[in-house]
Amino acid sequence: MHEVDMTKCLLLSMEEWKRGQEPQTPVVTAVHLQVGAFTCVEPEALRFTFAAAVQGSWLDGSTLEIESVPLRARCLACSSAYNPDPERAYRSPCCDRPMEEIVSGRELRIRSVDYSLPHQISDPAAVPPR
């Protein structure tokens, strides 16, 4: 269950981001991730552990949006991109080359955060006109 540790890492990064917002306290509605197919992360397991981990925390009520990024490689013989297939040992279908250059699929990225800043002076809606 390494997704538990992945989630811990994610929450640490989110804490860091929250500190960067001080003195305001953001209310997070969604965390957007990109998870590559060529990683050890199972999106379903990650969603599950995230939901359990944020209960009662400042992230309670936020959702985890996971965009899956397919594995893509580039054949260095002819430059064409392909979807490596384990059935063909990930080799390029065009020239039967090994998987040399991975173009996408290794992503484990916190892409963005949706949030609002309630009842704070810097909340544009809350600043009274001078």
Binding site: M6, L10, W17, L33, I110, D114, Y115, L117, A125
Partner: peptide
């Protein structure tokens, strides 16, 4: 509240 969005582009790990 204005919905805001921050791009982090941060590695999950």
């Amino acid at each position: 509240h204005m919905p805001l969005s921050d791009t982090l582009g941060l590695n999950l790990l």
